[in-house]
């Protein structure tokens, strides 16, 4: 029975040739993650990924804030598919779980209601003159890192193990609702068996902790965060997760969704300011990594090339634990080694 259930959550992931659709939130807060994702796929794994200048936001944040109508987002998504088709690709890799959820949802809607697909085609043609072929496969960028996790393990320069004691690092993961819950069988393990990040952690030597609120939403809730008056609810939900994971003394959090990654980092700062509570040892926070950053560290990329200086919770305790060499004086340098400045406060 269990085998049968798990089998339902498997998906076929192609090995090569992807059209990359960037994420508004990941670009904004984790540009280094997107950069290193492309470097890992292209330079370390030899995979062809096309990074197109012409694609835009899928407008998903607007759609889930209920200001962008369904007909509009369907046509914007159809335009992304058209750009993919024109570039000669059939597989789409999305850097955002909400886009991934929406692409999957819209393709399913079109399957069940072909008249909606026809309407989107007609709208796209009229607005842009473009045509599209539907993608053969839509994956989230973590699906690809998961798919190649053993090849990454073969090239690993760092393992998720405490080099002194040999103890596997304890990792808590957060999958993100729109990856796991809109079409559970479209994501590896769905919400029942959240394995997309746990599979990476295991392959790279760490141990995943199945904490009680593991499947709970981070709380983002679009309008619930985007409108200032509502922010207490997302904060309270992230707090619920942090309270649930803290007793396991995790070495770090890894998250799938760009928004969740950012919130689990920033809300730790807000909670420390509001309540004076911190969730890591020695009055510090628990470092929060994107899976690209986790893969990048494993492959030996430098933390500041990965963009970890953009986190509010500092990652240095984790780097020290893993005996990763880094130069603190390089943390706040810009391009060509130019010193930018220091944030007013970057501890925690």
């Amino acid at each position: 029975m269990k085998r049968y259930t798990w089998d339902r959550y498997q998906k076929t992931i192609p090995d090569d040739r992807f059209y990359y659709a960037r994420s508004c939130i990941r670009q904004n807060f984790f540009p280094g993650s997107e950069a290193v994702f492309l470097r890992i796929l292209r330079d370390d794994l030899g995979v062809d990924v096309f990074d197109d200048a012409k694609h835009t936001s899928c407008t998903g944040i607007g759609y889930h804030s209920d200001i962008v109508p369904l007909e509009t987002i369907m046509t914007v998504v159809a335009r992304q598919f058209a750009l993919m088709t024109e570039a000669g690709y059939e597989n789409m890799v999305s850097s955002c779980i909400t886009s991934f959820g929406l692409y999957t949802e819209i393709l399913t809607m079109w399957e069940h209601h072909p008249e909606l697909e026809e309407q989107a085609r007609a709208n796209l043609k009229a607005a842009t003159g473009r045509d599209f072929v539907k993608p053969k496969c839509v994956v989230h960028s973590s699906d690809l890192i998961f798919h190649f996790r053993e090849r990454i393990a073969e090239k690993a320069k760092v393992r998720l193990v405490d080099p002194v004691s040999g103890r596997p690092l304890k990792v808590v993961d957060h999958i993100g609702c729109h990856y796991a819950k809109i079409f559970p069988t479209a994501g590896i393990g769905g919400s029942e068996f959240p394995y997309v990040l746990a599979g990476m952690v295991e392959s790279w030597g760490g141990e995943t902790v199945d904490y009680p609120e593991r499947r709970h939403c981070c709380g983002f809730g679009f309008r619930n965060y985007l409108v200032q008056a509502n922010r207490g609810v997302p904060l309270s939900n992230s707090r619920q997760k942090l309270e649930s994971m803290a007793p396991y003394k995790p070495d770090f959090i890894v998250a799938n969704c760009p928004g969740c990654t950012m919130f689990l980092d920033k809300w730790q700062y807000a909670i420390s300011e509001i309540e004076g509570v911190t969730y890591g040892p020695d009055g510090r926070g628990i470092p929060v990594l994107s899976y690209e950053e986790m893969a990048g560290l494993v492959l030996g990329y430098g933390p500041w090339d990965l963009g970890m200086q953009m986190h509010q919770v500092s990652v240095e305790p984790l780097l020290n634990k893993l005996e990763i060499e880094y130069d603190e004086s390089h943390k706040f340098l810009g391009n060509n080694g130019k010193y930018i400045s220091h944030p007013a406060h970057c501890g925690l």
Binding site: L235, K266, H311, S341, P343, A344, H345
Partner: peptide
């Protein structure tokens, strides 16, 4: 304000 001082640094630079 919940974005914290590191975001302010990013915003300014």
């Amino acid at each position: 304000p919940e974005q914290g001082p590191v975001w302010r640094w990013i915003y300014d630079n």
